[in-house]
């Protein structure tokens, strides 16, 4: 598809902004949908109504909210470290756009399919923590700083099991191209043969996106807002947007790695892809609205003492079996 963009615009310098716009639009629409869905799911689990006023079932409510956020005055507190404070939301958001260009939505729908797409995805998703730390440090606020520090520790702890569980898939598929990984799963999805890796991946991914019960960096009952305490208006909106976009990304990655991507009977590929992604997103919401938050040291202990050994063992067993077969 990237090639198509270049053909349409004639030059790669026009094609890149166009592609970014398309991705932003895609993310925006999905994020708005997910925010709406989150509010509806939360409401129904708590026996409430959720948004009902704007649009059918309140579907336009989140759009109104976004317009409100955009129209708000951008406040820069006087005590912040200006450069870091301003650059942080952008640093957080840029890698997300890059990652999005790598996902195969269906057999032919992909911006660019690299051989090492998986490495890129993991590398870019690791960059998010830089943005979070910049926000926390630049805000010059103790709560933000605590949030940022917690965020870094958490990300370091959960990158490891995340990558280890992904490696098991890579060993089985013998490729790092997302497109080929999906193609490998044409008979059975990897969740059947790699259930442990799938579970570890999903838990680590939930922690990676700072979603409850791992929302320790922004725990609002402890750290008020964590790293984004000092942000308001659309700058806060970007953090919010980034959180939901990274939800889409990890769920899309899980779909590609374990659920067989776009593959499925009868319906067209991208429909299957979205069904799977949205199911995983629902699962994440279900977690969030059921569990209390873990404490920081428990979270680390859980990662280092349970997830990492399990993922290593899983990897070892996978490697041995693959070798033997």
């Amino acid at each position: 598809m990237a090639r198509n963009f270049t053909e349409i615009f004639g030059s790669v310098w026009f094609a890149i902004p166009a592609a970014v716009t398309v991705i932003m639009g895609f993310l925006a629409i999905n994020a708005l949908m997910i925010v709406w869905m989150e509010r509806k799911v939360a409401a129904r689990m708590q026996r409430r109504m959720g948004p009902t006023e704007r649009g059918v079932f309140g579907l336009l409510q989140t759009t109104y909210d976004m317009i409100k956020l955009m129209s708000k005055e951008l406040i820069t507190p006087r005590h912040v470290s200006r450069k870091l404070y301003l650059v942080a939301p952008v640093v957080l958001f840029t890698p997300i756009i890059a990652i999005c260009s790598l996902f195969p939505l269906s057999e032919n729908w992909v911006f660019h399919d690299y051989d090492i797409a998986l490495v890129l995805v993991l590398a870019f998703s690791g960059m998010a923590v830089v943005g979070i730390f910049a926000a926390g440090w630049g805000s010059n606020n103790k709560y933000s700083l605590l949030g940022a520090v917690r965020s870094i520790l958490q990300n370091i702890a959960y990158e490891v099991p995340l990558i280890l569980s992904v490696l098991a898939v890579v060993i089985m598929a013998r490729t790092m191209s997302l497109h080929e990984i999906v193609m490998e799963q044409s008979t059975i999805p990897y969740i059947v043969v790699q259930p442990l890796a799938a579970i570890i991946f999903f838990i680590a991914a939930t922690a990676e996106t700072n979603r409850a019960p791992f929302d320790i960096p922004e725990a609002e009952s402890e750290l008020v807002g964590g790293f984004h305490t000092e942000y308001s208006g659309m700058r806060f909106g970007l953090f919010f947007f980034a959180e939901y976009s990274s939800m889409i990304i990890v769920c899309a990655l899980a779909t590609v790695l374990f659920l067989g991507g776009w593959q499925g009977p009868i319906l067209p590929g991208f429909v299957w892809f979205f069904i799977k992604v949205y199911f995983l997103i629902f699962l994440m919401m279900w977690f969030r609205w059921t569990f209390p938050r873990l404490r920081f040291d428990q979270l680390l202990r859980f990662a280092w003492l349970l997830l990492v050994p399990l993922a290593l063992a899983n990897l070892l067993v996978t490697a041995i079996i693959v070798k033997l077969i």
């Binding site: 799911v41 409401a43 129904r44 689990m45 026996r47 409430r48 279900w286 977690f287 609205w289 059921t290």
Partner: peptide, 19 residues
Amino acid sequence: SLLKGMGVTIRHFFRKPVT
């Protein structure tokens, strides 16, 4: 225990709101 908790919330998910 986590799954049990999830069972409670999903049961409520399908009940009528009390609002």
